[in-house]
Simulated assay, not measured.
Amino acid sequence: MTSVLQPGRGPIPAATYLPSTPEHVLWGRLPCAADEPVLTVEPGTSVTLDTVSHEGILEDQGRDPAAFFGRHGVAEVLEDAVALAGSAHPHRFGVDGPHVVSRPIAVHGARVGDLLAMTVLHTTPRVPYGVISNRHGKGALPGEHPRDGAPLFSTFAAVSDDGEHGLLPLTPGAPPTVRFPLRPFLGIMGVAVPGPDRPHSVPPGSHGGNLDINLLTTGATLYLPVQVDGGLAYVGDPHFAQGDGEVSLTAMEASLRATVRFDVVPRKDALARFGDLAGPLAETAEFLVPTGLDEDLDVAVADCVRAAVALLQARFGMDPSLAYAYLSAATDFRISQVVDVVKGVHATIRKADFGR
């Protein structure tokens, strides 16, 4: 079973390390231009960041992770989660978002108009358990779940002894017999927005943020248009697993230690490789992954299709009408999530189809 990775202990792959102790994180809000960077790094630098899941520390769960997880037989809880929950860190439940995110990292030379590239090099679970929650009025079925109008339903999800699967019971209180594969990723990866106001952590946007794209596992890169000089990048909302859609408000939320490389793609190179990006673009070994984001799912789908057509035109010189036809024949458009106010759609364009 996975051991507990307390702050500063265990494997730290990168030479630069950012813990998630209270002074190094924001809770419920994302960085803006007014925030001072907690680190400034050169392009190409890798940073190992500890992340803390919000599940188990929120006010409606008692803001006491030792007691919350202790009820499930957990003997060792993350010290940084306990410290944050017990601190005077400003968090307004029901006003701010739930997510814990790192304070921003500035990347030297990143300028407005460039792209900031964030490549996930490694993820390690910090604990051998997670939580899946639904809260009243939220999720894909807000009038139906939680049942009986309860304000909160949280289920504890264990990790298998081999560390490869999450475990759930078929009925409450029964032994866990349902197994599903773990694919750890960071639900929040983003850059700071202009101005003096920190945005809410829940809705994603052109800044990235709470994208919840489950393809952003080890080896994937997220490209984001730089909105503030230096980029001021951040991560958070760690997941052990999530299905496309994330219908029950959260997926298997659990703390990760992640190593991320930060690179800058100058505007000229970015235009040649991707066209004029208005929002996030992901890339994996197999796929190019343009996105669409809107409160209306139909609009999000349409925006994602437009982004995919523009990407094929810029990257491969493909005629827009033929690109549109190709996408219909060969590309899956997936619902990233439907629970974050702004809904997300992402396309999976196979690079091998273009000999790349």
Rank of each mutant, 00 (worst) to 15 (best):
S3W: 04
Q6S: 07
P7G: 00
P11A: 15
P11S: 12
P13Y: 05
Y17V: 05
W27E: 02
W27P: 01
G28C: 09
P31T: 00
A34F: 11
D35C: 15
D35I: 04
E36G: 12
T40L: 09
E42D: 15
E42K: 14
T45N: 12
T51P: 05
S53T: 15
E55P: 03
G62Y: 02
R63F: 01
A66T: 15
F68W: 14
G73L: 06
V74D: 06
A83H: 06
L84M: 09
R92N: 13
F93G: 10
P98K: 10
V101I: 11
P104Q: 10
A106K: 03
G109Y: 10
G113D: 06
G113C: 11
M118R: 02
M118E: 06
M118H: 00
T119I: 07
L121K: 07
H122S: 15
T124S: 14
T124N: 06
Y129A: 03
S133Q: 15
N134H: 06
K138M: 15
H145N: 01
P146V: 12
A150T: 10
A158F: 04
V159P: 00
V159W: 01
S160G: 10
G163L: 11
E164R: 15
G166K: 01
P169N: 08
L170P: 00
G173N: 11
P176L: 00
R179L: 14
R179V: 06
L186F: 10
G190N: 07
V191G: 13
A192F: 07
A192Y: 03
A192K: 00
P196S: 08
D197N: 12
R198K: 14
P199A: 10
P199W: 06
P203F: 08
H207M: 12
G208S: 11
L215Y: 08
T221D: 02
T221N: 03
P225G: 08
V228A: 03
G230L: 09
V235Q: 00
V235S: 03
D237E: 15
P238I: 02
A241S: 15
E246W: 00
E246S: 07
L256N: 03
R261P: 05
V264Y: 05
V265C: 04
K268T: 14
D269N: 12
A272T: 12
F274Y: 14
A282N: 08
E283V: 15
T284C: 13
G292I: 02
G292C: 05
D294Y: 01
E295M: 10
D296P: 02
D298Y: 04
V299A: 04
V301Y: 15
D303H: 11
V305S: 05
Q313Y: 08
R315V: 07
M318D: 04
D319M: 08
L322E: 14
L322P: 02
L322R: 15
A325E: 14
S328H: 13
A330S: 13
D332C: 04
F333P: 02
I335Y: 05
V338D: 07
K343T: 05
H346T: 14
I349V: 13
R350W: 09
D353T: 11
